[in-house]
């Protein structure tokens, strides 16, 4: 009896809402929409990359993009920072003969970083690593949380 009454109440509610929304007219699109679409067409924008963003790129491209961009950035930094004390060094690094110097600089950087990590690992107590990891995790969560909060405020409420 009670179940029957509940079902009847649910159906009544469904009919009520169906009645309220039935035949509602459409909302007018913003006046800017047409201009935006025509401008995008005239600029030759493709829908895929521009609107959907990095998250919708094909998976292999996404996986390749990060190391490729990192390598490019690292190469530029090494060229400018390692060999770029003056324009002549930079020019030497950019010509084929300069690749040896670039490789040497890269190897020296990796070795120095490895040495520093080994020294740090041997000199710090084990518990410090857990503290450092916890701080890093909190920092990461905080940055991500703040970013999402900003996105939500500016984008979805805007």
């Amino acid at each position: 009896m009670n179940d029957h009454r509940t079902e009847s109440s649910e159906l009544k509610l469904e009919r009520l809402i169906s009645g309220v929304v039935a035949g509602l007219p459409t909302r007018r699109a913003p006046l800017t929409l047409e201009g935006r679409v025509l401008a995008a067409i005239s600029e030759g924008n493709t829908p895929l990359a521009r609107v959907q963003g990095f998250a919708s790129w094909p998976a292999p491209l996404r996986w390749l993009a990060f190391p490729a961009l990192t390598a490019v950035a690292a190469g530029l930094m090494l060229m400018v920072g390692g060999a770029g004390r003056d324009t002549a060094d930079l020019a030497r690094a950019l010509v084929p003969g300069g690749w040896t110097a670039l490789w040497d600089a890269l190897r020296a950087t990796v070795e120095a970083a490895g040495g520093a990590m080994a020294l740090l690992g041997s000199s710090l107590p084990g518990s410090w690593w857990y503290v450092a990891l916890a701080v890093l995790a909190c920092w990461y969560a905080g940055v991500v949380g703040l970013g999402f909060a900003a996105y939500r405020l500016l984008r979805t409420r805007g």
Binding site: T26, R27, R155, G158
Partner: peptide
Amino acid sequence: DMVFSTAVRITANDAQAEDIAQ
């Protein structure tokens, strides 16, 4: 109008619905 209405009822956000309609 139809496309925008469809998007805005699901997203409940005019700016996002306009992006989707575009």
